[in-house]
Structure formats: structure tokens, C-alpha cells
Nucleic acid binder design. Sequence first.
DNA 1: GCCCTTCTTTGACGGATATCAAATTCAGCG
DNA 2: CGCTGAATTTGATATCCGTCAAAGAAGGGC
Lengths: 218, 218
Amino acid sequence: MSQPSGPFFENMPADLLQELHRTGSLRTFAPGETLFYEEDRADQLLAIIEGRVRVWRTSPRGAAMTVHLLGPGALPGAAAVFGGMVYPAPPTAITDVRTLGWPIERAENMLQENAWLASSVLKIIAHRNEEMLQRLHEVSTQPVEQRVARTLLRVAPEPANFTPATRQELAELSATTLHTVSRIISRWEADGLVDAGRRRIRIADRSGLAQRADPVCG
Amino acid sequence: MSQPSGPFFENMPADLLQELHRTGSLRTFAPGETLFYEEDRADQLLAIIEGRVRVWRTSPRGAAMTVHLLGPGALPGAAAVFGGMVYPAPPTAITDVRTLGWPIERAENMLQENAWLASSVLKIIAHRNEEMLQRLHEVSTQPVEQRVARTLLRVAPEPANFTPATRQELAELSATTLHTVSRIISRWEADGLVDAGRRRIRIADRSGLAQRADPVCG
DNA sequence: GCCCTTCTTTGACGGATATCAAATTCAGCG
DNA sequence: CGCTGAATTTGATATCCGTCAAAGAAGGGC
């Protein structure tokens, strides 16, 4: 078994990693499959080992938004699990995905007995909180171009500076439409800031893009 | 000492309540005072016993938004405390406020030793997560009037159906301007849905307002 | 290699809301 | 009881961005 990467597994003690592998149930999902359903009782802690996942939410009327794009080391629905709630938004696989899952009782026991694990999970939840807060602030106060710039900086982190997201996904993450995103990306490409393709965007000039994300304060 | 109310204290075992009072440090804040500052290391768990608090965030350029309006039983900054982060947004007192605070090490110990407490705190954090997610969705997909309606339903809960919020605060919670909020409230008042005044709004027809929050699906 | 689906680009247009501006009302306080 | 500053209301105007429409690319499968 290969060492999984990402926030949850990063720096994890080897013995804990082994125990997690031993006690968790491995599942695989093909692109398009749903990991769990909104409104289901959150009875299982899930960790993504490999693959990309889109977390999305729709209103009764069908207005969709992408809540997160998650990769290895993410814990979709973790807050709901420990908060005793229903899952807030369904995650669906974009690529082939492998996950490890633990029933909620076992997860709670593990957290109680292992301080490192508890702290790691809380950090991940707190980080998600902070990210949502920031996005809320952006959507409330910033014009579209800045929001898209920030979204892109977020989903194409260093050092890869790359993301396989569609325009539609970027739009939903930025609270706008794919048309507007497309126009903006085209302009940026003409300005040499990014290098775009189908389902593919690479940041060519990260500091230039950061400028667009916050024209005044750099 | 009177029994404090709100999410955190609701249904709390009497002995735990006593211990919390005994070990925590009580502080008071006058209107306008700040409970803690953004960017400070989150080294203290704070619980609001009494009073109203506005949590807000500004960008370097001054664009402000109100993140939450909190009352008794809220735990401002809790996610940051347990996630080992800095406080994400400063809470300032609107009314006279009394809080109980515990240093982070003590808070962690208490949670480790008391499952009821741990579960309660996690529920509060998870609930905040869910609320932010919902607001993000609203801001991304719904027109202004619906957003304001939902905000109002949220900040003026049953049975009081009342909130002492200003138009400006409602605007920042709804990602719009006070002008737009004012126009909308005026219209609602003419339609008999609310009963508004200075720093004061009461919902007169809750189901009618819910209609405005979601015209199609009621 | 060709078709067919999915994704992307681009243009024209309209409308929901922010912005600008000014008057009005209200509450607290001396 | 009038003053004063804050909160609110209302109108006119401008504009960003979503909507509508249609035409390209770019893979993927057969």
C-alpha cells in the first residue's frame, strides 16, 4: 500500500496510518458516482485516499453550486459526522476515487484515544470553516473578476499551478456563470497570466493573477 | 447566578455548568468593545452568557461584511481555537455583554474528559458550518429579495419574531446594500409582512415572508 | 478518420442592483 | 422641548453581469 497524501495523511505517524488502513473499509467510485447522499444521516467518516471529488448543492428549484473541489486527504462531511447532523451536500467522484471509511462510533473512539488524530481532524474542519468564511466575504464584497482570480489561486495551488476544472466548476465556485468565466479566462490568456485549455488551466504568472485578485492592495 | 440560555448551555448537566462557572473567567464588555482581535492566536475558548455580538470582517480596502449576529450560548471563534488557528473575524459587543472564557489547554482537557461537552461543542461548530454553507448557496444563486427574506427569518427566530438589527447589518448579512434592504423592507411593510422601525423589525406574517424567501417552492 | 457529445468562445441585449444624492424621521440628551 | 447625529427612506441614474443565441474546438468511441 502506498503512502496516501494530503492534509489528513500528511505527517501521520506510521503506526496510526497502519491502524487506520486495518480498521477502515476501502471503497472505490467511478466518475459520476456519489459518495453519500445529502440528507442521509452522517454515520460514517470518510477520507479520500485518491482521486478528485466535487461537492455540490442544489436548491429545490435546481440552482446548482459547487461547494468544494476535494482531493486526497480531504474528509467530506466530517463536520456533519461529529456534529451528529445529516450530510450537508453530496460529493460525487470526478475521477476514479478510493476512500477509507469508518463507522461514526469507531471514529469517535479513535478520536478520543488518539490526540494526534483528534487535533488533525479538528484542524481540517476549522480550515474548511475559514475557507467558507473567506468565500462568503468575497462573494459579498468583490466583483466577479477578483472572485474568479481567487478561486483559481485556490484550486490551482503551488507548485503545480494547475487544475483540471471546467469553466462551469470555476463559475460555480465563484458564484457566477460559465460565460463570464470564459470571457475572463480568455482575457487573462491574452495577457499572459494563464495558459488555458479544455478542462485545464495553468497559472503562468501567479503574482500577476494575485494582482487581479486584489487590484489595490496587491 | 442565573441559568444562562442558548445552544451551549441548553440542557447542560447542572454539575458541568457549575464547574464551567468555577473554572472560567468572567468578563464584561460595553457596546462597541471587541472581544478579541482578528489575527490573534486563538488561545481562549469564549462563551457568550448574555448580550448580543456582531462578528464582522473587512478586507484591506475596507469592504465590510457582517458574518454573524450572536447571542447567549454562542462560542465565537470556537472552530479556530480547536483548529489551532488565528481568530478568523473579530466579534464586537452590540449590547452589554458577559462572557466566560477558558484557556485553550483547559478547554481541550475538559473536552477530552467530558463527552457531553465535546459533543456539544462539535454540534455548535457543525451547525455554523452548515449555516455558512447555506448562505454561500443563497448568495450564489438567489436574487436579493429572497436573500433578505431568509436572513430575516434567520435573525428573528420564533417565537419572538423580532430582531434589533439595523438595515446596514441586514444588508451585510445578505450581501447587499442598506438602500436595497430599506426598499425591500418598505415594500414588505406595505404588504403587511413585517412591522419595522428604527433598529427594530418584527415579522408579522412568517409564512408570507417564507413565500418571499422561496417564491416557487414555498 | 469521422461522428457526436461535451466543453468553450464570442456577441448582443436587457435588467437587477449598486451608486449617487438628498430629504426625512427618529431617539437620546442637554 | 429643541438640537443633533444616526438611521432610514426615496428617487434618478449608471453599470456590471447574467441571459439569450449560436457558432466553434476538442476529445472519445467505433
